[in-house]
Nucleic acid binder design. Structure first.
Lengths: 65, 65
DNA sequence: CAAATATGTAAAGCATACTTTACAATGAGG
DNA sequence: CCTCATTGTAAAGTATGCTTTACATATTTG
């Protein structure tokens, strides 16, 4: 699943570390999410959604195939 | 995190087994989700959202606390 | 009631999400 | 160039999501 985390994080002028702190996760987790290494848990997706002020569907692009 | 899966599944007159088949997961997983034993992964949440024809935010209620 | 369908639950195992520690590589500003 | 902030990556460990098998307990239907 692709996501717009990096794009939306940069729009706020936040480093990965800064964003990680706001989310309450490690910097490595933010890095892994941006690089598409894995998808966040649903609760974390909601936190990301809240902090980036976008609906989940506006951040994560689900490709059924 | 609470969810409306059971309510929306019943509205379609689907058994847990029928719904599980449509989702491509086990019946036990559907049961566990409805009973709130754990949250689905984000990809599974998207599948549920698609099949129940509701946005993720309309099915799962995130409580930050 | 009897039989069939639906739901709840448990244990063991595999896969994925996330952590900490640590170090390497990139980029920006003095 | 030097330094510092930022980003990328790896390994080992813990936690969570999901599977299969199996069985018990409803609930529905003939």
């Amino acid at each position: 699943m692709e996501n717009r985390i990096q794009e939306l994080r940069k729009a706020q002028n936040w480093s990965q570390a800064e964003f990680a702190t706001r989310l309450g996760v490690s910097r490595q987790t933010v890095n892994a999410l941006e690089r598409g290494r894995y998808d966040p848990s649903l609760p974390l997706a909601f936190k990301i959604s809240t902090i980036l002020a976008q609906p989940i569907e506006g951040i994560f692009i689900y490709d059924p195939s």
